[in-house]
Design a binder for these strands. Sequence first.
DNA 1: TTAGAATGCGTACAAATGTACTGGGTGCGT
DNA 2: ACGCACCCAGTACATTTGTACGCATTCTAA
Lengths: 129, 129
Amino acid sequence: MVSRPALSKGEMDVARVLWDVGPAGVRDVHQALSKEREVELSTVQTYLRRLETKGYATSQLKGRARVYSAKAKPRTVIRETVDELVDRLFGGDSMPLVRHLIEERGIEQKDLDELRHLIDKLDRDGGRS
Amino acid sequence: MVSRPALSKGEMDVARVLWDVGPAGVRDVHQALSKEREVELSTVQTYLRRLETKGYATSQLKGRARVYSAKAKPRTVIRETVDELVDRLFGGDSMPLVRHLIEERGIEQKDLDELRHLIDKLDRDGGRS
DNA sequence: TTAGAATGCGTACAAATGTACTGGGTGCGT
DNA sequence: ACGCACCCAGTACATTTGTACGCATTCTAA
């Protein structure tokens, strides 16, 4: 895996949109992103270009319009980003972050069961490795 | 609460050291940080200055040496940072991050119990509010 | 008291980031 | 064929970030 330069905040926003809407032209991404925050079309364009330069997206001309597609998978980017955060904020130990999330941010009732299951599963697996 | 500019990665590193070692001079911070990565003294100095400018630290001269102290509490900074990450990466929903952490990063056996307790507690509380 | 060490301060500067304008081509309606 | 709308490539530029040098001053040991 070639190691790409990390995504900046703004780039991340655009990448997220791209994951959500799938392959799309500048116009589309701009519109989708505009629902979250105000931004110029040309700005979105620049981000998309940089995304491609950094290896997180590809593009190809479809007729007159350039269509961008996410290349890196969200899962991967998320992992890299979170890894970095955990390193920086907690010296690599993820438990404090989990604790923080559960304590400080509301977890939906309906998610609690899922969590419990996750934990049980880990418990079983961990019990034998 | 005055809203400070967010910390950059490098600043965060220095802030973390400052939290760890408590009030300290540039020299001390530099030494502590050097254990993690190579960096010039003057660089650390710049970071400390910026930390103070941004409102995350204070300093005062003790004799000839300037001693820096963390001002913002780690808890606060962590909350802000994580909030931002969750917004950006998951549109504000923290559950996916929790899931990711539990699935993708190893949770120590001994932490599983704690997690279970946390969840139970939340379950009780949430069941009523 | 004088040379060197220590130290803070100001300053520098390249790279990355956030944000955006413009010019030039291309396709469409008339 | 003409003008308008649309779209991309190139470029611009201020701010933030990463990284660091050198000067002035103060302390210290000889």
